[in-house]
Write a protein that binds this DNA or RNA. Structure first.
Lengths: 394, 394
DNA sequence: GCGTCTTCGTTTGTATGTTAAACTATATGC
DNA sequence: GCATATAGTTTAACATACAAACGAAGACGC
């Protein structure tokens, strides 16, 4: 439901808007901001003064004249503060320290000892505290210090409350991760699904109002951006396209459903397709580097290539379902499988062209880089403090 | 992208909010509105005065005392103006005149002569003009007269531009229906997909922020409400869950995809299931009253009952996909098939409980009444003029 | 090199809106 | 009947965006 507005809210909205414009389109002059936003130039001046006083924006000198006085160019002060992002996966976790413009100034990869069902809730919590603390120590001195941390999890989490309901290989009991971690840190903590984080980083980068991020790893998760907001659904668990059935009478999935998409287009599926085409070495199993190993093999093996093409076909079937149901402006493939994109992307595109309706056939399809998820996690604090306008409830 | 706010916008937002509160929760006193909205009571008084001057709101007398002066109760002045709604289907069109609170004061059903590919674009336009004019003549005198008309179409339309891309049985060439009809009428015309209209009327009634309306007729269309706004996607063609594949290698559909959900859970599918179980009379064919005939037969025929249960099973499979991907708070089944709900609903619920994940198992599932779509069409002008706030871009 | 014009940005005054507080009106209850 | 509570209005104060005037700084023609 919409919220009411008073003078302070009005200013907050306008200020967030100006910040976002500088963020996305900077460097800009006050004049240009006024033209883009439609705000009066006096208003822009006043808002920018505030942002400069807060050190979030800085003047970087004069721009080229347009026939008169030279404009003063403004841009985000990237090192005014830093954010921490953590991407927790089954086999490892990656922690980064990012500046305000999303530049990675420190990163650390840490394997998670327990691959098969051994890690406890408190052990994971300790790991997180340790990794975040390590990142804090790497932060250069800055006026705002650490603005917050965002944690991407490969399971079911409620962003609004910060509680975690399900993670693979970890028994969860009544776990409010945000509350737990907040005891150790003075900055705000945000928790979200990894697919959502991936989607968010793409949104921040491309400003496409409606997009779906398809996170292909051991399973498939998706993040949905609708009208420029992450869509989380009624209970915060939207985006499980991986557990929609593309074979009504298919094999039963761990989730209880039958013929789930992720049974046909994930690492698990790839492994199955590989076994179908030829004898594969024992080293090829569900592991952090399954995909990269398979990609290497595919360079010389037509069988491996065929397996990737089969995967691409099913990936395309599921993506066609997504574009037909949601008509997004952009679909991005991320996750571990993304590195194999050259081997399956043509197949995906072929299937979409044949199966999607109308203008969905031309949907823009791209591949995310490996850091998309962890970058999105690091962006959560920025989006929720610096840019957040109270009307923009997702 | 968010918009900027000035004083006038601020007031418009607050006024729209107050109107909506009275609309949804009235009768209310000024004091109660102040508490619900958080607006100062002086502000509420001022906004309400404006609404009363415009005759959209009226004082209906004193309420019960809470230990002091009795409150003046306010409600929407339902007959301050009227809206026209048209639901265009393949076999017929239904036109209604609705008052501001959604009460139907006139309705007219008109068969469409051409069932199989005979109606032209201009003929349909003439029909629409005729029916709308007839409805205008039925409007009681009121201070605002006709506020607008909304038209629900069973095809692909772009709400924003008012143009129609595809309708079954009609060859469309470059058709901007809003523009065409606007020449004949002085009030604003809105055009939308029938699934969207259905979803919108349910939203107006239940205020559930995230819901999906499943329009089951000859095919399946869906309307999606996300965060209280109709989600239309990048090109305005979102919601084609009917053309998502639930059988990756199934039969080819008219849309080009394979194994589309609507091939398994629509009137077409019902007819097939009926043929499978027993000899059916020739009178049973794709026609406006197929479902009601079949429902009658089912009262005495176990075979018919079985066919409906099979339909329910596939309906459930598709709905499980919807709830897993979108996690809506409410799913509503509408369209012609809704009248047979008692025959398939238990099956749908069973399948959802078994196939949906986590809290999606408990998703609220209801059946819409027959007028949902046409009522939603009639609501379009209200939502876009009376209640519309400029920040609420869908 | 000088004056004029253009553009950039600030300053000042005004309009509009919400809010808080004082005030009026009207009810309850002892 | 009087104290008290609630409903709604009036008044003044405050915040903000906006428009217009103003000042600053460069471009350009002569």
């Amino acid at each position: 439901m919409a919220k009411t507005v008073d003078a302070a809210t009005m200013r907050q909205i306008n200020k967030g808007y100006v910040t976002e414009i500088i963020y996305n389109q900077g460097p800009l002059s006050r004049m240009e901001i006024s033209q883009v936003t439609g705000l009066n130039k006096a208003t822009v001046s006043s808002l920018v003064d505030e942002l400069i006083a807060e050190q979030f924006v800085q003047e970087i000198g004069l721009g080229a004249s347009n026939g008169g006085r030279k404009p003063v160019m403004l841009k985000i002060n990237a090192s005014a503060g830093f954010c921490i992002g953590v991407d927790v996966q089954i086999t490892h976790m990656k922690t980064i320290l990012a500046d305000l413009s999303g530049g990675i100034v420190y990163q650390h990869m840490r394997p998670i000892a327990a691959i098969h069902g051994l890690l406890s809730q408190s052990e994971l919590e300790e790991l997180l505290v340790e990794e975040i603390q390590r990142a804090i120590q790497q932060a250069p001195p800055s006026c705002h210090g650490i603005l917050g941390a965002g944690i991407a999890l490969p399971g079911i989490v409620n962003y609004r409350t910060g509680s975690v309901f399900y993670l693979p290989n970890i028994e969860i009991r009544d776990w409010n991760l945000t509350d737990s971690l907040s005891k150790s840190f003075s900055f705000p903590i945000f928790v979200d699904n990894d697919g959502n984080c991936g989607a968010w980083s793409i949104y921040r980068e491309r400003h496409q109002q409606n997009l779906v991020f398809v996170n292909v790893g051991i399973g498939i998760g998706t993040g949905i951006v609708v009208n420029g907001h992450l869509y989380r659904g009624q209970d915060g668990i939207a985006g499980e396209f991986g557990h929609t059935s593309i074979a009504a009478m298919g094999a039963v999935c761990a989730c209880g459903n039958y013929g789930c998409w992720e049974q046909y287009a994930s690492e698990q599926a790839l492994l199955r397709y590989l076994r179908e085409v030829e004898e594969i070495p024992a080293s090829l199993e569900l592991s952090p580097n399954l995909v990269s190993l398979a990609v290497d093999k595919a360079a010389t093996s037509p069988g491996y290539q065929r397996a990737f093409r089969t995967l691409g076909q099913y990936l395309g079937i599921g993506i066609a379902n997504i574009v037909n149901s949601l008509n997004p402006g952009l679909v991005v493939i991320g996750g571990t499988m993304a590195q194999a994109a050259p081997l399956f992307l043509p197949e995906v595109q072929y299937v979409i062209r044949h199966r999607a309706m109308a203008s969905n056939k031309q949907v823009c399809l791209t591949v995310a880089n490996a850091d998309a998820i962890v970058l999105g996690a690091a962006q959560l604090p920025i989006s929720n403090t610096l840019l957040h306008s109270p009307l923009a409830e997702s």
